[in-house]
């Protein structure tokens, strides 16, 4: 099947300068399991555009590195 890679604006952003190596709190808490630790940067990032903009990821981050934006289509 023909396929295309497509770029999406994802709602959750992570400040990599603040994000702590080895911490997985936001990844553990996301109800949709949309966050992951990037294998190269070792920082959290949103790996799929699946978000209820509910907020546990930001609320549980101990260093305030996670921001939940409203998904682009709703903004």
């Amino acid at each position: 099947m023909a396929q295309a890679n497509f770029r999406a604006d994802v709602p959750v952003t992570v400040d990599e300068a603040k994000c702590i190596d080895g911490c997985t709190l936001c990844v553990d808490m996301c109800p949709l399991d949309s966050l992951a630790i990037h294998p190269e940067t070792k920082k959290a990032y949103m790996h799929v555009d699946e978000c209820w903009y509910c907020g546990p990821c930001a609320a549980r981050c101990p260093v305030d590195a996670v921001t939940v934006n409203i998904p682009y289509l709703l903004r």
Partner: peptide, 13 residues
């Protein structure tokens, strides 16, 4: 109406 699959009233899980 937004067309966003997970922008539902209920938790989309």
């Amino acid at each position: 109406a937004s067309g966003y699959l997970y922008g539902t009233y209920e938790n989309p899980t």
